[in-house]
Design a binder for these strands. Structure first.
Lengths: 248, 248
DNA sequence: CGTTTCAATATGTATATACATAATCGCCGT
DNA sequence: ACGGCGATTATGTATATACATATTGAAACG
């Protein structure tokens, strides 16, 4: 397979040259080093840089083009595209990735954290029949300095006890959970809603402004794990779900 | 570019060999001719069938694999994969069924019907590169006496000529199309938006009220078929998508 | 001065070839 | 029968090469 050892970002991984080129360029774009509109090196320059054939470079670039990260123009070269805020509904979306795909710095900020015995409302949201300990979290995802999404989350501590020890001060609970709890089932509810005062305040928009609300319940082996509600200002967000492939 | 003329569904389009192979196989799989688990021809067989090099076939198959339609196993061949749990969001959209599930009488009412040559905006929505005839429809779906959703639709008459003869007075174009045109690909965009005057008027809600907007583009064998936008008043509608993780 | 033409250039697609890798089948010896 | 070993096979990745196509910029022309 003609493999090449590469010192990758985290711990030496073995990547094919093709993948190496792909991830190099992707990294440059997502990190913002190459801003939208920037002309990326010509195929023949990359060919020289990686010391490989043009076919290999071409394959990588074609793939990036199909993924929508770059745009290729004959005779002119290849350019970093203006990103569109998109997320596949079908994947458990990671807001960090969405934000970074926009070329903006991401951070998370906790607003509230309460441990309590589940009330009726908590149980309805989680789908629990018996009372038990839950962790209620509220936090803001930022794109640059602007709030990008408000997150309101319940975690069933009977299913994920370790979560009770976490502060979630500046790490979002989503990625944390995904790394720890294998989910077996999820349900999304998507709707529009007018911002009430709490939401308007958090997201810095007007009361009554339209918002997109995505709620997700997740189960692991029949046990409810978490319920989360993401609230996005309407202008900032479109969900995209595509069926049958366009690959990336 | 070594182009090949293909007699395609409507009006000869020019496809590269690579794309021809891709869509051929995709069609076979999506139509059900090759069921999940079926072993698709070996690369060398396709090479012979299309009279091209293995690289070309390989590229197409790799793409299908990345798209998740097929699975490739060394020494064994390539197999059609079990379909992914994607149907969730897709199936949601027969509005009659949604309404009837609520126990309310359903009917559809046409507001507008215009046949025209596609302008720039039409082409952008449909994803067409060249101008051609389109049918623009606007209609209302009712639940009982109340408007349930506003539908704004474009149909590419180059792909579905018969649609030009239909009046769509009280039958919705969605079900009509589904019965006639096998779709091979669809894209959903979901967002929230404030009602403008047109929408508020049609749906009998206030200007500025939040709405859920679901847009769908559908292709059949690489041909754009239709673009449709459903606008729901926020209170009336929640999308639900349930799924389990699919490996791969 | 504007327009037409043409060559240069970067990408797009295809070829033939080569070797690596993973999985399977069948052979073999115990 | 059983387990291991090598040959076979299909895919995976890469090479060098060739020619097509779109677009740009500059030269030639009226």
């Amino acid at each position: 397979m003609s493999l090449v050892e590469i010192d990758d970002i985290e711990g030496g991984e073995i990547l094919s040259l093709h993948q190496r080129i792909l991830s190099d360029i992707r990294e440059k774009i997502l990190s913002g080093a190459w801003a939208p509109g920037h002309r990326i090196p010509f195929e023949h320059e990359l060919t020289a840089h990686y010391n490989c054939s043009r076919m290999t470079v071409n394959k990588a670039l074609s793939q990036l083009a199909k993924a929508g990260l770059i745009e290729r123009r004959r005779r002119s070269g290849s350019f970093v595209r203006q990103p569109q805020s998109q997320a596949a509904v079908l994947e458990l979306h990671d807001i960090r990735i969405e934000v970074e795909a926009l070329g903006l710095p991401y951070h998370y900020e906790r607003l509230e954290r309460v441990k309590r015995r589940s009330g009726a409302e908590d149980r309805a949201l989680l789908g629990l029949s018996a009372p038990g300990p839950v962790l209620a979290l509220e936090g803001l995802h930022f794109a640059g300095e602007r709030p990008f999404a408000l997150e309101q989350r319940l975690i069933n501590l009977s299913a994920v006890a370790e979560a009770g020890e976490e502060e979630f001060l500046d790490i979002a609970p989503g990625p944390w959970l995904i790394g720890r709890v294998p989910w077996s089932e999820a349900e999304h509810r998507i709707r529009a809603m007018a911002a009430d005062e709490t939401i308007a305040d958090a997201l810095d928009i007007d009361v009554g402004a339209p918002c997109l609300v995505v709620e997700r319940r997740t189960w692991s082996a029949e046990h409810p794990v978490t319920h989360v509600r993401f609230v996005y200002p309407a202008e900032s967000h479109t969900l995209v779900a595509r069926f049958t492939p366009s690959q990336g």
